[in-house]
Nucleic acid binder design. Structure first.
Lengths: 146, 146
DNA sequence: CTTACCATTACGACGCGTAAAAGTAA
DNA sequence: ATTACTTTTACGCGTCGTAATGGTAA
C-alpha cells in the first residue's frame, strides 16, 4: 500500500455501500441491534461481500433510521414491521390490493400514536412530580445543615 | 352462612388488611407483578393468613402506589428500591447516618429525572411526527377514493 | 359443597448485551 | 503480517405473562 492510501477511511467498501459498523455509528444503533433487526426480518442488507460482510445501501440506512425513529412509539418490533410495510404499500402508488384494508390499519396505528403521545406526556408529568419530591427532600435535608 | 352475609365483598379479610387481588385492582397492577415486587424485595406484605394468603396494610398499598408512579422514570427495579430507601432514610427525621451521602445520591436521581423528562418530551415529539406521517398517508390514500 | 380467591413452581417472550472463536479486508 | 473490522453461535438479563397444579376462605 502506498502512503497516499493511508486515508484510513473505515469502510466505504464499494459503490457507496456501507458495512455494518459505519451504518451503526451513523444511525446510533449497536451492531447487535442492526443484526437483530435483520434476524427478525425488518431490514436486510442489500448485498454481501464475497467473504460474507453485510453491505447496506442508502435505502437500507434510511429504513433503519425510520425504524429507530419509531422506537418511542412503544410498539413491538413485529408491529413496527407491519407499520413499515403499510407505509411501503401505501407509497407504492399502484394500490393493487384493497385500499380499505390499508386505511383501517393505518387508522388504528394513528389512534395508537395519539394514545401514546398522551401517555408519554402523562409520564413526563409523573416524573416531574417525582423530581419535585426529590428536590423537596433535598432542600428539607440541605437547609438544616448549611 | 346466613343470607345476611351474602354481601359477597371480595376480601376485606380482617382489620382493614387487604389481600392481593383487592390491592392489585386498586393500584392497577397484575397479581404477578405485585408478587414479583415482593420477590425482588420492594414491597413485602405486612402479614399472612394462617393459610398463607398475603395481607397488605394501607402502608403497603401506599408503597406500591409510589412504586407504580416511579415506573415512567425508567429505572431498574433495583434502582427504584434504592430511591425508595433514600426517601425512607431522609424522611426518618433522625439523620443518624451521613447526611452528605444522602444528598449526593438524591442529587444524582434528581439529575436523572431531569434527563428523563427531556427524553420523554423528545419521544413525544417523535411520535407526533410519526402520527403526522401516518395522517398524511391516510389523506393521500383516502382523497382519490372519495 | 361450591365458588372465588390464593399459593408456588416453572417455563417462555422480548430486545437486546456480551463473550467466544474464527474469518475477512486492505 | 498486521490491524481493524466482521462473521456466527450461544448464553444471560430484567420484567413480567402464562400455564399447571393444588390449597384456602366463607
Amino acid at each position: 500500500l502506498s502512503a497516499a492510501d493511508r486515508t484510513d477511511s473505515p469502510a466505504p467498501s464499494r459503490e457507496g455501500l456501507l458495512q455494518i459498523g459505519e451504518v451503526a455509528e451513523r444511525i446510533g444503533l449497536s451492531l447487535r441491534t442492526v443484526r437483530y433487526y435483520e434476524e427478525v426480518g425488518l431490514v436486510t442488507p442489500s448485498d454481501r461481500t464475497p467473504g460474507g460482510f453485510r453491505l447496506y445501501s442508502e435505502d437500507d440506512v434510511a429504513r433503519l433510521r425510520v425504524l429507530k425513529g419509531m422506537k418511542p412509539f412503544g410498539l413491538s418490533l413485529e408491529e413496527i414491521g407491519e407499520l413499515m410495510r403499510l407505509f411501503d404499500e401505501s407509497a407504492g402508488g399502484a394500490h393493487d390490493g384493497d385500499r380499505a384494508r390499508l386505511c383501517t390499519a393505518l387508522e388504528r396505528y394513528h389512534d395508537r400514536a395519539e394514545a401514546r403521545i398522551g401517555q408519554l406526556e402523562e409520564h413526563a408529568g409523573e416524573v416531574r412530580r417525582l423530581r419535585d419530591r426529590i428536590r423537596a427532600r433535598l432542600e428539607d435535608l440541605g437547609a438544616p445543615g448549611a
